[in-house]
Amino acid sequence: MPRPVLILFAHPSYEKSRVHRRLARAVRDLPGVTLHDLYEAYPDHDIDVKREQALLVAHEVVVFQHPFYWYSVPPLLKQWMDLVLEHGWAYGSHGHALRGKALQVAMTAGGRDMAYGPEGFNRHTFREFLLPVEATARLCGMTFNAPWVVSGTHAMTDAAIAEAADGYVALIRRLGEG
């Protein structure tokens, strides 16, 4: 049973991106996938809450696709979380709208994998840095999948980017199949 996938794509400078541009293009036209470009839809950060909630209701899998900025999500995605995940709708005793859906983070990081870990330069794993997102998913009754990360993008060849795009397509397909 295919599950519709909503990709919330948050990139403040898409024009300058190398990796996300390729990732987004690779999955944009897959069947059952809605790629929602947040920075394109809300350049003034004036998020249409009702529209976003309707989109969430219509999909089973939610993907946050974004670069990893200051160990966190870009500001518009945080704004989206603040405004869209309303009490009484997404969580709270009457908030069940998202229950049973899945949340997947798909992000890129400039540093390499080995920089993220207890011994690494950044001291924590990606999963640890993403605790706020994981906790948000849990509060909304969503299953939180292990983050899918393309790391080391500062020094990435075109071939490696193409490979990452293939991996992303495979991930999205897998999520859609359930």
């Binding site: 809450v49 603040d82 405004l83 309303e86 009490h87 009484g88 709270g92 005793s93």
Partner: peptide, 11 residues
């Protein structure tokens, strides 16, 4: 209702 804690206070 953005950043509005009223309903949270109630609950």
């Amino acid at each position: 209702t953005a950043w509005d804690a009223e309903s949270l206070r109630r609950e």
